[in-house]
Computed example of a mutant assay.
Amino acid sequence: MEDRPAAHIKTTTTGAISGTGRGGSTDTGVWLRRYQIAPAPRARLICFPHAGGSASYFVPVSRRLSPELDVLAVQYPGRQDRRHEPCIEDIGAIADGIIPELLPLADRPLALFGHSMGAAVAFETVRRLEERGVAPAVLFASSRPSPSSVRDEGLHRSGDQALIAEMRRLDATDARLLEDPELLEMILPVLRGDYKAVETYRCRPPHAAVDCSVVALFGDDDPQAPHEECLRWKEHTRGRFDMHVFEGGHFYLNTHAESVLRIITERIR
């Protein structure tokens, strides 16, 4: 990731939805995007975007970590080159869709990084991989309460203005873009579908655990990921658990990119 990626990241949540999103990526199937070639990587890092986010959010990560790591980003339906597909409004169903494309990539150690909604999708993906005999090395869960934490604030059932207000509150995108009616027309259905997936997600069984290690990362001023709920990620792993707290809110990684990438690379090494 670049030293100062905030401008890229803050516009990706909205701007990337309307783009082609496939430029520069190699052919990886429907669900995954690879923006840099890593001929002999030590491991593969699979990145899962937040609600409203898209694969290109992780372009700076790919540039920064390749060729040591083969970085692939998940592209959910409803955005960028998949913008004509309906959103999937169920976390488990999203994970089910990704699995067939991940299984052939298990010839290298797998690490999964999920931000916000992406952390829940990544957790369910790890569960499905382990059920199939694939053992990921580590799950990085960013800005997301533990799977057993239920946070249904009803945003997916609220009006458009409530969703816009939430984007402003989380500093999820450039405020100027939220004044563009055409952009909002594209953004809001995707965001509403993702929020439905997040708010209706229930871990079954509630205290399901994975064998791989879990690293929880979050901002100390994040209203969506309170400290005590992030700490409960340790209940969902039978492996090692670590936690890292940064100054900032829900998108703390905008200003702590280098520190986050250092944690990822050192842990994988």
Rank of each mutant, 00 (worst) to 15 (best):
D3A: 15
K10F: 10
A16L: 00
I17A: 09
G21Q: 05
R22L: 14
G24R: 12
S25P: 11
T26W: 02
T26I: 06
D27I: 11
L32W: 06
I37Y: 09
A38H: 08
A38M: 11
L45T: 03
F48K: 01
G52V: 08
Y57P: 03
P60S: 03
P60M: 01
E68M: 06
V74P: 01
G78Q: 11
G78D: 13
R79L: 10
Q80K: 00
R82M: 08
E85D: 15
P86G: 14
I94D: 07
I98A: 10
P100Y: 12
L102P: 03
L102R: 07
A106E: 00
D107G: 14
P109I: 05
A111C: 11
H115R: 09
M117H: 06
M117G: 08
G118N: 04
T125W: 03
T125S: 14
V126T: 09
E130P: 07
E130S: 10
E130Y: 05
E131D: 15
R132E: 02
A135D: 06
V138S: 01
A141K: 03
S143K: 04
V150C: 08
R151K: 13
E153W: 11
G154Y: 13
G154P: 12
G154H: 13
R157I: 05
S158I: 07
T173C: 15
D174V: 05
E179I: 01
E185F: 10
L188E: 13
H207N: 12
H207F: 07
A209P: 11
V210Y: 04
L217Q: 08
L217I: 12
P226Y: 06
E228V: 12
E229C: 04
C230E: 08
E235G: 00
T237W: 02
R238W: 02
D242G: 06
M243C: 12
M243G: 05
V245N: 07
F246R: 12
G249I: 00
N254D: 15
E258G: 12
V260I: 13
I263A: 07
I263E: 06
T265D: 04
R267V: 06
I268G: 02
R269F: 00
